[in-house]
């Protein structure tokens, strides 16, 4: 690790790392303050198909974190950036709550399809509409491809199955924009003037956070909070750069060893 360049940016996962559901990880607010005293750019990165940046900001601020909206980068932001780069007008199959993140993006006469988690849109009419657009050449953009998620009353289909159905029918591949895609991590660094080798990612998901970041050329620190289960660190190769008890310990390591 001696050839490593100096650290310039720290990417931090939200749920499971800074907070678990509605409680902050003990000491995380204070640790974030200490991290900000160092000469590094901080970005908060998360996979979400439902919560807009404003919703996330509101929750984090409520938990006592000092965070600005422009520091948050989500899978919805990644989708938005892709739409802007490709200059396309999306048919948005996303939850209404996510729509604020697409403010200003034209959706008339759509020529792209964005699929998030939107059970209310996953019906025959809308699927046919999306299908016809894709068959006519519209790019298919998936916020992520989760198979299912858990609700109080049981398991529910995620966006992945619907994306897969559209891929099969149109013989195309969706562009997946969320973690663990390499482009997600590279996009999160955009505007920071920082190369992947100069960044570290802290998260509780070994594959999506740590593995994804390391595939993109960053270092990855796994924290044993949130969804972490013993031996998660053995799930990826190469192994995480480091595994810590929690976010404050990860910050200590960065301040002492990585600057």
């Amino acid at each position: 690790m001696s050839a490593r360049r100096a650290l310039k940016a720290v990417l931090v996962d939200l749920n499971g790392t800074l907070h678990v559901e509605d409680s902050a990880v003990p000491g995380a607010q204070e640790a974030l303050k200490r991290l900000r005293s160092a000469p590094v750019t901080v970005r908060f990165v998360t996979n979400t198909t439902k919560e807009s940046k404003r919703d996330l900001l509101e929750r984090l601020t409520g938990l006592g974190f000092d965070i600005a909206e422009h520091e948050i980068f989500t899978s919805l932001t990644a989708a938005r950036n892709l739409l802007e780069q490709q200059q396309v007008r999306p048919l948005l199959l996303v939850d209404d709550k996510a729509l604020p993140d697409f403010t200003g993006i034209g959706t008339d006469n759509p020529n792209a399809v964005v699929v998030g988690l939107a059970p209310e849109h996953f019906h025959y009419e809308m699927m046919n509409r999306a299908f016809r657009l894709i068959l006519d050449g519209a790019p298919l953009i998936a916020i992520h491809k989760a198979r299912y998620f858990k609700k109080k009353d049981g398991l529910c289909l995620g966006p992945g199955p619907f994306v897969t159905g559209l891929e099969y029918a149109t013989d195309t591949k969706a562009t997946v924009v969320g973690k663990p895609e390499k482009t997600f991590f590279l996009e999160a660094l955009r505007g920071t003037d920082c190369a992947p080798e100069e960044a570290v990612m802290i998260g509780d998901d070994c594959r999506d956070d740590v593995g994804g970041a390391q595939q993109a050329g960053m270092r990855g620190i796994l924290v044993r909070t949130g969804k972490y289960r013993p031996a998660d660190e053995d799930k990826i190769n190469p192994a995480p750069y480091l595994t810590c008890e929690n976010f404050p310990e990860a910050v200590e390591h960065i301040l002492k060893q990585m600057l």
Partner: peptide
């Protein structure tokens, strides 16, 4: 117009 057939839902 064109409609999704059963295969798309089978794949899902």
């Amino acid at each position: 117009g064109l409609k999704l057939d059963v295969g798309a839902y089978m794949k899902a």
